[in-house]
Simulated assay, not measured.
Amino acid sequence: MKQYNILFLCTHNSARSVLGEALASTHPSGLFVGYSAGSTPGTQVNPFAREIALELGYDESKLRSKSWDEYGLPDAPKMDFIVTVCDNAAGEVCPFWPGKPSTAHWGFPDPSQVQGTDLEKKAAFNEVRNGLKRRLDILAAMPLEKLDSMSLKEIHTKA
């Protein structure tokens, strides 16, 4: 079975994009290898995102904020899909991605900006996790070998 590399982009690569990476890599279909990066990566992964990733069974050693420049290097994995998950990253000029991967924007509010109790903050992260999972489930059910950017963008409206 072919696996598809999917890169989730967000500005700081500490919350939403990390959740995308973990969800894709642990998706029950086995179809995806998730990656994440940011235009201006933070210094650490948000503790709530880390907790969810570990609950999913994601490898803790892979949880770090990364620059999207890493994925433009010649020895970087070739991406099949690029998904921005925050409005800031969607509006930025992205690097050149070798192989012309399909791209889409699946925007979610930043859960790390939620004020309140830890329970309220965790609920915001779970909302993003659930939304990303729904979109990945839809993506996994599609004929991936025939997928183009337009089809990938339509997932946003179906989820």
Rank of each mutant, 00 (worst) to 15 (best):
residue 32 F to C: 04
residue 139 L to P: 06
residue 106 W to H: 01
residue 109 P to K: 14
residue 6 I to H: 04
residue 49 A to Q: 09
residue 156 H to A: 14
residue 16 R to I: 07
residue 137 D to M: 08
residue 139 L to C: 05
residue 59 D to M: 02
residue 128 V to H: 02
residue 58 Y to W: 14
residue 144 L to E: 01
residue 134 R to P: 00
residue 34 G to T: 04
residue 49 A to C: 11
residue 1 M to S: 15
residue 9 L to K: 01
residue 7 L to V: 12
residue 63 L to C: 05
residue 125 F to H: 05
residue 30 G to W: 13
residue 2 K to E: 05
residue 9 L to Y: 04
residue 152 L to H: 03
residue 121 K to N: 02
residue 40 T to A: 14
residue 134 R to G: 01
residue 153 K to C: 09
residue 26 T to N: 09
residue 13 N to G: 08
residue 54 L to V: 15
residue 121 K to V: 12
residue 125 F to P: 07
residue 67 S to C: 09
residue 81 F to N: 02
residue 16 R to D: 04
residue 68 W to S: 00
residue 77 P to M: 08
residue 11 T to E: 14
residue 44 Q to L: 06
residue 123 A to H: 11
residue 75 D to S: 13
residue 95 P to Q: 06
residue 155 I to Q: 00
residue 116 G to D: 04
residue 115 Q to Y: 00
residue 66 K to Y: 06
residue 13 N to E: 08
residue 74 P to K: 05
residue 89 A to W: 03
residue 154 E to M: 13
residue 79 M to Q: 11
residue 85 V to C: 06
residue 159 A to Q: 11
residue 99 G to D: 10
residue 127 E to T: 14
residue 140 A to T: 12
residue 30 G to E: 06
residue 64 R to W: 01
residue 45 V to Y: 04
residue 109 P to Q: 05
residue 44 Q to P: 00
residue 9 L to I: 15
residue 140 A to Q: 11
residue 116 G to Y: 07
residue 38 G to K: 12
